[in-house]
Design a protein around this nucleic acid. Structure first.
Lengths: 190, 190
DNA sequence: CATAAAGTAGACAAATCGTTCTACCAACGG
DNA sequence: CCGTTGGTAGAACGATTTGTCTACTTTATG
């Protein structure tokens, strides 16, 4: 088995559940049943491990989201499918994403507030990627102001995630979907 | 000078800027120029100090937000004033709130993921208070579904905060205001 | 003025942090 | 068969964590 991958996945689970500074490397090693030297042969520091975790999560998440969108017809249906996907995520119906504890990237920015730090920038890049996904979908539709619409749809998504996490509102995605629908209806030209 | 208050304000500033686990009590004491024994005579632990910080921030923030809303005519203008207030906050034009580093309550929930923990519950209570503020304003208006509208407006607010923090998008509040306007227009009966 | 309360600085304890290190073992290719 | 590679366990290091403690000083009040 790939030790490096095992470290990334274990660290992800612990960071996601308890926060980054709250989890020590010893705890990661214990759970992964991997020796300390092995960790430091693959990663030069805890922060480098975190960076690998963020890249791993980004890849998995974007892959999942885009698949869910592409399962529907391009355009409005695809975008609404994203909010259905969020609903599944919030209610722990997606095995690949681990039990919902908010967004790892938002959580990470809370702990790495300096925008010039590498973790913060990786989080920013992830959000840009999701934004791009939505924007590309909008471009296949007959709508004006795709930039503004993509901004609002992703902002709505962030709001739903935070509401689901902080308030424990399991219906957050369903509510957000309704507003997204309205937004798309009033924006569609044809 | 009230040492207890000085401790709360110093701890707030540091927690807000760097995160909670990243800041040690020694650092708080150094900056506040207060002895360790004094801290532990006022608060039985770091977490109790955090709880006092959350209560302090909650009071200041709700006071500020409701004042900004009440400066406008009741109803739609008051709610839109909230988004103008957010814009000032994101762009560091509000002295009382300290330099923008996202929302302390969202940040805290990232580090205290367990919803049954006291810090998490204090954050939840704060968000409920803001939600109530918006909902009461909606009740003075001729709109149906005040619950749904309050949900969406606060969700939009959370999305704007996260976008401003993670993406560094200083225009997030202005964009959110535009969608809020549209939402209120299409919901108004008269 | 005297006493009590509340502050000070900072040493200290016990634990944990991230990181480096030694010593050893197993598998594999030349 | 021997040396390299990559793994193991875990000791050790120095720094830092939260929290307690001693000893002293300031301040307020009766």
């Amino acid at each position: 088995m790939d030790k490096r991958q095992k470290l990334i996945e274990t660290a992800f689970r612990l960071f996601y559940q308890h926060g980054i500074h709250a989890v020590g490397v010893n705890q990661i090693l214990e759970e992964a049943k991997i020796a300390k030297k092995t960790l430091y042969s693959h990663f030069e520091s805890k922060e480098k491990l975190l960076e690998a975790v963020l890249e791993y999560r980004d890849a998995r998440f974007v892959e999942w989201a885009s698949q869910r969108m592409q399962q529907e017809h391009a355009g409005k249906a695809a975008i609404l499918a994203l909010f259905d996907a969020l609903d599944d995520w919030f209610n722990d119906r997606v095995e690949n994403l681990a039990a919902f504890h908010g967004c790892l990237f938002i959580n990470t920015c809370s702990e790495y507030g300096d925008p010039s730090s590498t973790p913060h920038q990786l989080c920013r890049a992830h959000k840009r990627r999701i934004h791009e996904l939505v924007k590309q979908e909008l471009k296949t539709m007959a709508v004006a102001e795709t930039d503004y619409l993509a901004d609002m749809l992703t902002m709505l998504k962030e709001g739903a995630i935070v509401t689901a996490q902080v308030q424990g509102d399991k219906l957050a995605a369903k509510k957000a979907k309704r507003l997204a629908e309205q937004l798309l209806s009033s924006a569609t030209i044809q």
